[in-house]
Design a protein around this nucleic acid. Structure first.
Lengths: 360, 360
DNA sequence: TTGTAAGCGTTATCAG
DNA sequence: CTGATAACGCTTACAA
């Protein structure tokens, strides 16, 4: 009941000045010279009454709501989305702003309805987020409103966007394996030719090439991007002769499947085969055994970067120059799935495949 | 730039009536009789101009913002939180409301700052969410504001809350195993005596008791609530004589560890041992092999229930009667980790433990 | 150095 | 049936 009760009028009365003066001192309006005496009285009164300006009234007057929204296709349903929100929220708070969150579930009608509601509330801008790295098209309702795209690029070249630096990520994965001494590598990529798949493969192969021509054996194969896909690809790539000693997986979930394949083939990780994942997905990368070395996706950073850029946009009412597009690099998370290739990693040294045990 | 541009004034002018009339017809104010002619003219004008009322102005006048907030300790960083948000958002949209999301990260200062910002914006109410089932104390700043606690109970008996129905969940888990024919069971519980641990154990044991005294062998042991804890407990409980044929795990992550233990002991799931998890955690329950039979937590439903209750509270300015507290039951998700106990599940039928293979 | 008054875009009261 | 007018709580020319 007792919400933002006390108003500027009451403060003014208590301090024995006009509301104008209260506004001036509380907002520290430049160019206004106010006696330190009244200034003190105002502060005292405001303090004593526990005054907090009504943001709606202020926004109505100033045409700035100090409110942004993050709208995404699955912004509330994926494990990564939370970190984008967090990054955005942290910078928003620094600007005394607060953030609406809208999950559209890929339904354009819901999206339209929600954006409508947001616009009525005079939000200052929007962070348009995608669950996975792709190219998005902004809904028409957003045109004219400061907008930054997160974890995706945008068909409209004028709007700023930020994505992970996939190529560098792929290169980092290669480096981890190469540094550990591996020379027979495989990359189990996503069958879908999404930007992440394309970028990671390019980076991975380029790093190998840069390492020295003919130095490294590399196989690239593709599969569905889940544990099941990883499992089958793992069976395939690890089951044959001249199997790789280091495997880079498109994501941690596929790596999970490769783990299973390795176990069933009687191969130990990392002794017999080293694995590198991608995403650093909670509960997976740190939950499977051995814990997975992987490349983290910079979700928090993307959220923060995008929010910063958004506030810039909001402040400078005019879009100045070309929209900045950025790719952020995630760190390598070193865990226990990578080791130097073992001496005995020739076929003769293999363990008995697990699925043969019963028949032995 | 072209935001919520057109105002009620312009509509009035276009329709040749006063703003009052426009407001009356657009809001369908009861008790006002307006000729269907002007009514039509107003609608037409509003339509043609694409008029959408400014929510801030309206809120300022009506003292209702049609805006709620969901503030939680880790509302943005856990895989479940998203579903709470989703449930809340869906019912909010039905009330033309939109939701702020605030993640406090357990920091009371951040919480206070954010709530301050929210109150200034005249939010109508708050969903106070916890990441895990516990008892929370509301921050003082929230007193007086309609509030519903989600996924936790509350020290203040006057505030409504909703939690999962842990006891029923435990009983459901027992039923799954019992129905499949298992008579030697184990429950690997969380060492922390949190409400979830207490409730699930009670339900599990009660169901077993109800099944018939002396009918079922049951062991309860505890461990850290992650994969590592599950692994060690799994080794312990599955490694000895008279091992259980059905294991219920406090959560899916622990079940993950038990899977690993089973594999290392040469036990197949579900042939040699059946496993039931809890949480139905994305990417785990459906990602491990075999996929895990588990009890789902009703996060979406809790979010939706809480939001519904919140809007009730907001509408009925006075708290009527005792605050309703509810426990919601999650469904059993049947997958592939449960089967009838095999005939040959005596020690003699075991496979060679995997960790002995190397020495064989 | 401070105050008056207009205005942000609505809705509510009351009169015509 | 319809329309002035005040008010919601604040900021900001402009005056004093």
């Amino acid at each position: 009941m007792a919400q933002s009760r006390v108003t500027i009028k009451e403060v003014a009365a208590a301090a024995g000045v006009s509301t104008t003066t209260v506004s001036h001192v509380l907002n520290d309006v430049p160019g206004k010279r106010i006696s330190s005496d009244t200034r003190a009285r105002v502060f005292a009164a405001a303090d004593r009454l526990g005054y907090a300006p009504n943001a709606l009234a202020r926004s109505l007057r100033t045409q700035r709501s100090n409110t942004i929204a993050i709208v995404g296709d699955e912004i509330a349903t994926t494990p990564f989305a939370g970190k984008i929100i967090l990054g955005a929220q942290d910078v928003a708070l620094r600007r005394d702003s607060v953030v609406f969150v809208v999950n559209t579930g890929y339904r354009r009608d819901v999206e339209a309805r929600e954006i409508e509601e947001l616009l009525r509330r005079q939000i200052d801008g929007v962070l348009y987020a995608s669950m996975y790295h792709r190219e998005v098209e902004l809904p028409p309702a957003l045109s004219g409103l400061p907008t930054v795209v997160v974890n995706a690029s945008c068909t409209d070249e004028r709007v700023p966007w930020v994505t992970p630096e996939e190529v560098a990520g792929g290169a980092d994965a290669a480096a981890v394996l190469l540094d550990a001494g591996h020379r027979r590598l495989a990359f189990i990529n996503d069958v879908d030719p999404v930007p992440a798949a394309i970028g990671r493969e390019r980076g991975f192969l380029r790093a190998i090439e840069d390492f020295g021509p003919g130095q490294v054996d590399v196989t690239v194969l593709t599969a569905e991007s889940g544990p099941e896909g990883g499992y089958h690809a793992g069976l395939q790539v690890l089951g044959g002769e001249g199997r790789p000693t280091g495997v880079f997986c498109f994501n941690d979930r596929m790596a999970m499947g490769v783990y299973r394949a390795a176990y069933e083939l009687g191969l130990r990780i990392p002794t017999d085969v080293s694995i590198v994942g991608f995403d650093n997905q909670d509960f997976i990368a740190d939950g499977i055994a051995p814990s997975l070395t992987t490349i983290e996706l910079p979700h928090y950073e993307m959220g923060a970067w995008a929010a910063d850029r958004l506030f810039d946009l909001i402040a400078a009412n005019a879009p100045e120059g070309a929209a900045p597009h950025t790719r952020l690099r995630g760190p390598v998370i070193h865990r226990n799935s990578v080791a130097p290739p073992s001496q005995a990693s020739s076929p003769g040294g293999w363990h008995q495949p697990a699925d043969r045990r019963g028949n032995a």
